[in-house]
Design a binder for these strands. Sequence first.
DNA 1: TATTGTTATACTCTATAACTATA
DNA 2: TATAGTTATAGAGTATAACAATA
Lengths: 150, 150
Amino acid sequence: MSEEQERVGALGPLVGYHLRRAFGAFAADFANAMDGTGMRQVLVGILAVVSGSPGINQGAVGRVLGIKRANMVSLINELVDMKLIERVVDPSDRRAFALTLTDAGRTMLTECLAKIEAHERAMLAGLSEAERATLLDLLGRIERREPAAG
Amino acid sequence: MSEEQERVGALGPLVGYHLRRAFGAFAADFANAMDGTGMRQVLVGILAVVSGSPGINQGAVGRVLGIKRANMVSLINELVDMKLIERVVDPSDRRAFALTLTDAGRTMLTECLAKIEAHERAMLAGLSEAERATLLDLLGRIERREPAAG
DNA sequence: TATTGTTATACTCTATAACTATA
DNA sequence: TATAGTTATAGAGTATAACAATA
C-alpha cells in the first residue's frame, strides 16, 4: 500500500488530520453511491430531517444540520423543484414555510437510505460492530462537546 | 443543550453523518486557532509534509495529502509568496520543483503546531487518552481501507 | 427588537480538460 | 508515451451583510 500516505510528518498524531481524510473518503464514496439519483449529502440530510419533523420550517432544518439560513434557500428550492418537498406558508407564523415530504420525497429518501446503508457497510467493512458503535460514540461526543467559553 | 441537534431522524445511526459534523466542528475551531497567522488547514499540511521530506516536489505533496496537482499550484504559490517555502528547479528532473522550508517556514510550522495541539486538546477534552488513541486507530483504518474493487 | 426567508456576494475546496516542457 | 507543472473553469460548501415581512 502506498508509502506516500505515511509521509505526513507532524500530521500523523493529529485527530483533525485523520478526521479530514476519513471524511473525504466517505464523501467521495457517498457521491458515488448517489450516482443517478441527483441527490447529494446535504439534500438527503434535509429530506431525513423533514421526514422526522413534518411541518418544520427551513431555518430549523438548518439549525439541526448546521447549515446557515442563507444557504438553506437554494437547497430547499432544489428539493421543491424536484417535487420531493412541499413548502406551504405556516398559518401559525406567516413568516415561515412549513415543509413536508411529497410521496416522491418519501420514496426518494427510502431509496437513498438503502444506498447509503450499502455505502456505509462498504466503508466500514474493516470494523467490527463494536468498533462501529465506539466510533459513533466518540464522534458524537466531539459534536456535542461543551463550547470553549460557556 | 440544544434538542434540535437530536432531531436528525434516519441520519442518527450513520457514521458518515457524524463524521461530517465532527469534521465541521474541528474545521471551524481550527480556523479560529489559526486566526492571525494567515494559515489554513491545507497550508499547514503542506508545510508539515515538506518539513518531513525536504526536496519533495509538489505533485508528491499533493498525493500525500490527497490534493490534485492542479489545485497544488496556487497553494504552493501562496506559500512561496509568504516566503515560507522555497521552490527551486530539481536538477535531477527539470520538470519538477524541489520544495524546502525557509527559516520563516520552519518557525511558522512550529508556531502553528503549538496552536493546533491546543486546539486538539480543547476539541478532545471529553475523551480519555485511550479513547483518543482508539479514535486515531479507527479513522486510520477507514482512510487506508481496501478499495472496493481491487 | 427579534426572527424568517431572501438576495447578493465572496472565499475556499474540489474536480476536469487541455496545454507546455521535460523525461 | 508518460509525467510535472500550469491555466482555465465549474460546481459545491460555507460565510457575512443587508433587506422585507412578520412576530
